[in-house]
Write a protein that binds this DNA or RNA. Structure first.
Lengths: 242, 242
DNA sequence: AAGTGGTCTAGACCACGTC
DNA sequence: ACGTGGTCTAGACCACTTT
């Protein structure tokens, strides 16, 4: 008679956790292929079908990407599909303009009360703050203020940001080994203050979206706190209610 | 030598489509249990595992709900979990207040150019327009203007709306047999005009979220076009980026 | 005890991509 | 031709709910 574990978890979920551990440890880099299902089945001592179910869940959560005939790959923020998962902004007209990130400021400091609460840090721990502007074509559309756990982003500065071609998450992933997995956004409507209005080239008190985001990496660890001001005269925040 | 169908679709997806058809036809009502996996396997002449995969997908899309030991049930908007899928508004404080729907107006008319385009109708086809206010506690928070395909909602009027306890989608589902499956929202920040400001009890030009929604029923048929004005001083629109 | 969904296995075959 | 993921099957057993 076996004692039931109080927190029973099926085999495929244990395999899933092992895979997440391996991903977190960097055993396979973003963009690389992981071993085939059969190899993983042998490695973990389970059937191929059980590995399959674990991989299925990770693929559904966008941590892995399956490609029939080729293999299963570690997801990467370089992938253009990943862009729109984390920036749900499209043009009113539906036309697709490329966005350009313009870093404005990058300063290091210590966590205040609010930041430490949101990022599960102690007050006074090192932090990095980034301000940047996002342009669609010539027009400034998003003003972001980004707070990051300092210990994870040593060496991040304005120069690094300015010389990087690509998305921020792409940079974080390849330069600092921090992969954003999921995020939560809180959206409000606010009036532009003098400073934001100036940067976004609109009149003071123009209504803006305030998008507050907390991003998490493996193990649901919060690593980024971000507040974006979105100008929505020519763009829209798109959301699917599935 | 068989000719390959150009639009190959695996067995479980065909089963899935058959299940959707049955749901659409109302073979099983919202809240009811559908036949067991084994029964369905016999009925469709496939293995239980194939039925399982079809049901898995429908459960992932919230059309069915699995309950171990009990059976698989047709999803219903009466379920409180369904509420927050389609109204992603929570209090700033995190406290959960119940929301009350106050119908203001219900008029019938004919589709204009914009409405007909969004709902894939012909200009001039019958429509119903509903205006309603959503209150959290005593406070008005959302002003909705809702356009529905008239032919699907015969008998919908202000009296029906006022006498209904529960969500709109709950009413649509049980009274008119129209189940909303998924929706797309476009979010902007705008300034309250005189009328909206008055109804929401705020000053003119107060920033509001403009949430434009198109809801779809089975077969991705658009049946509702809705524009909500959200007051976000004490509430937030919550979104998960998975 | 019986019925439901949930897990796990093993094996066969298909579709896709590469060599 | 071969290796990959994708589908389908059949059967065993587990966990949960109801009778």
């Amino acid at each position: 008679m076996a004692i039931e574990s109080p927190t029973f978890s099926p085999l495929y979920r244990q395999i899933k956790d092992l895979l997440i551990q391996a991903l977190q440890a960097g055993e396979w880099q973003p963009g690389e292929a992981i071993p085939s299902e059969n190899e993983l089945a042998v490695r973990f001592g389970v059937s191929q079908g059980t590995v399959r179910k674990a991989v299925d869940e990770l693929a559904a959560e966008h941590m892995l990407i399956r490609r029939q005939g080729k293999g299963t790959f570690v997801a990467t923020h370089d992938d253009p599909r990943s862009f729109f998962r984390f920036l749900r902004l499209v043009s009113n007209t539906g036309s697709v303009e490329p966005s350009i990130s313009v870093p404005l400021e990058c300063v290091r400091g210590r966590a205040g009360q609010e930041a430490s609460r949101v990022l599960s840090m102690e007050v006074g721990e090192p932090m990095v703050m980034v301000r940047r502007l996002l342009k669609f074509g010539d027009k400034p559309v998003v003003l972001d203020e980004i707070y990051l756990r300092g210990e994870l982003f040593v060496g991040l500065n304005l120069e690094v940001l300015q010389s990087w071609e690509g998305s921020l998450y792409s940079l974080f992933e390849s330069r600092f080994g921090v992969r954003m997995i999921r995020a939560t956004e809180k959206i409000r409507a606010i009036a532009a203050d003098r400073n934001s209005a100036e940067v976004l080239c609109v009149a003071e008190n123009t209504p803006l979206l305030s998008v507050e985001r907390v991003s998490h990496t493996y193990g649901d660890k919060p690593v980024e706190w971000r507040r974006g001001l979105y100008l929505t005269t020519e763009h829209v925040y798109l959301n699917e209610l599935g």
